[in-house]
């Protein structure tokens, strides 16, 4: 069910450009890209390195701002927001999953999942309950007290997904979520993300360079040289 774009799309890029440096050394990572992503979509972004896909992800995730054009998140123009206001957006509406897991070492799985909830200012017992619930959803109940170093790569990525999930985000942004995992673990993680999209209605935007991984998504966007060159529904796998 490729969602038809609602009246106010969740994510809207209008001629978004992003360049680094100035003058002769100016590099255009994104050269005027427009697209919309609606609530409930599962989008895979592909493209060679330097194509602008990571830049697009950073802008969607409010970690970066466009140097030209407009980015509307739930209708809010993000390009006008300062660091702290963008931090607020990340805190309340976005969850991140990274290739390298990015868990805090020497903190238990539960503490890692609690991290975003601390910044939401939730009381300790509420945090703990939400974190346990999130760990249960990713199938890690019983591992709450484990350190990241005591968990396998697949389990660490599940903790990271639980962390992204715990705050009840509208969107989970996954940057090469299976890049550090073997094939079996990769498919487990993808099935988990697929289930979260299907059952929880969470919008997922994922960067990957592996075709089989991209096939878990419902929509495929391909970037080349700072342009969006393909944008199409993912065909059902044979």
């Amino acid at each position: 069910m490729s969602a038809p774009a609602p009246s106010t799309p969740l994510i809207a890029f209008r001629d978004v450009a992003r360049s680094y440096g100035a003058g002769e050394a100016e590099v255009k990572a994104l050269a005027g890209v427009s697209f919309q992503i609606g609530a409930g979509e599962f989008v895979a972004i592909m493209g060679p390195s330097g194509s602008g896909k990571s830049t697009a992800m950073n802008i969607i995730g409010c970690l970066d701002r466009p140097s030209a054009g407009e980015y509307l998140f739930k209708g809010i123009p993000v390009q006008g927001l300062d660091q702290d206001r963008r931090a607020l957006l990340r805190r309340h509406a976005l969850g991140f999953v990274f290739q390298g897991f990015n868990l805090l070492p020497r903190q238990s799985a539960l503490e890692n999942v609690e991290l975003p909830l601390i910044y939401k200012g939730l009381p300790a017992d509420t945090r703990r309950a939400l974190a346990r619930e999130a760990l249960r959803k990713v199938g890690l109940d019983g591992r709450e007290g484990h350190d990241p170093s005591q968990l396998s790569g697949g389990q660490q990525q599940r903790v990271a997904i639980a962390r992204a999930l715990a705050g009840g985000p509208s969107v989970i942004l996954a940057d090469e979520p299976t890049g550090n995992l073997d094939s079996a673990r990769s498919h487990e993680i993808m099935r988990l993300l697929q289930a979260l999209n299907r059952d929880e209605g969470i919008t997922i935007v994922m960067v990957t360079h592996e075709d089989p991984i991209a096939h878990y998504a419902k929509r495929l966007m391909v970037f080349t040289d700072g342009h969006l060159t393909r944008d199409e529904p993912v065909r059902e796998r044979a």
């Binding site: 660091q83 702290d84 931090a87 990340r90 991140f96 990015n102 868990l103 910044y119 705050g167």
Partner: peptide, 12 residues
């Protein structure tokens, strides 16, 4: 970086 990504403000 992780703290900022999950929503910590500069002040926090």
């Amino acid at each position: 970086g992780i703290r900022l990504a999950v929503g910590a403000s500069g002040g926090q």
